[in-house]
């Protein structure tokens, strides 16, 4: 555990000296929080009918997501904010991908991997340390952004029933379960990509492909192809868990010491 902790601290000491990493870690959560809060603010006086007609959304969709007792305009707000749940899911993907890309490629460019692998650290400890160094900031940033969003909602929304609806189980599953699972998937994917390229920007750009499923989810939801209700999000979490298990298993098979030494260069 001490070795994992050493790797973790070393990674953070290194990557958080990189302006690109700092920018992504700081800017992305701010952006992803400001957008839904801005929407919440701008739609707080909108009536259900006019809102629905503006966006072409039928009231059945919004009513289906709303608990009893909420007005049409409240339901519209619930619906609109739900659309942005997927945007929050970009944070635990983008931040770990950026950190992992700079971490691995940086290690390659300074040729510091061999001395590192020559120590008694196990391959698992090394990979876990590196993964955690990328996952933790992503997850914490997601939680932080969600906390600010929840606090902002509490200030902006007068109807506390609406607040309860906004912060229901769907959101909690998404933020606290799907988010970390997405982060793990993004990091393992980024590790695989970074081991093959020698430029951190290329590693980051290629690894960002992993964000596509999140964007597909985002636009699919906006287009009305599906609604992210409790059941759907629970299934997403289950699938993510299985995917992560498969990816981590593959990573432990692929990233053997010799492979890392001879391939990561």
């Amino acid at each position: 555990m001490k070795k994992i902790n050493t790797i973790l601290r070393k990674e953070w000491a290194e990557v958080f000296k990189n302006r690109m990493v700092i920018f992504v870690v700081a800017f992305l959560p701010i952006l992803m929080t400001a957008i839904p809060l801005g929407i919440l603010f701008s739609t707080r006086d909108t009536t259900s009918a006019s809102s629905a007609s503006m966006s072409g959304i039928n009231s059945e969709t919004t009513q289906g997501m709303c608990p009893e007792g909420l007005s049409g305009s409240d339901c519209f707000q619930v619906f609109m904010i739900s659309e942005f749940m997927m945007m929050f899911m970009i944070i635990p993907v983008a931040i770990p991908v950026t950190i992992a890309a700079y971490s691995i490629v940086g290690e390659k460019s300074t040729r510091s991997l061999e001395p590192l692998l020559a120590t008694p650290i196990t391959t698992a400890e090394l990979l876990v340390g590196k993964c955690l160094a990328a996952v933790i900031p992503g997850v914490l940033a997601t939680y932080g952004a969600f906390g600010i969003f929840a606090f902002g909602s509490w200030i902006l929304v007068a109807n506390k029933m609406l607040l309860t609806a906004l912060l229901d189980a769907r959101w909690l599953i998404a933020i606290f379960i799907v988010g970390p699972l997405l982060a793990v998937m993004a990091v393992v994917f980024s590790l695989m990509v970074s081991s093959r390229v020698n430029d951190p920007r290329v590693a980051e750009q290629v690894s960002m492909v992993i964000i596509l499923p999140v964007l597909v989810g985002f636009f699919g939801q906006i287009a009305g192809l599906f609604v992210l209700n409790k059941v759907v999000i629970s299934w997403v979490a289950l699938v993510m868990l299985l995917l992560d298990a498969v990816l981590v298993f593959l990573a432990t098979k692929v990233f053997q010491r010799e492979q890392i030494l001879t391939r990561w260069k």
Binding site: T6, E14, R111, E114, P115, A118
Partner: peptide
Amino acid sequence: VLTETPGMYDNLSAEYNLQIFANLY
């Protein structure tokens, strides 16, 4: 092991570079 290239963490201090390896060893 002294590897072919020193392979230091260039952004970190000399002391911290060694401290990392003292922990790992």
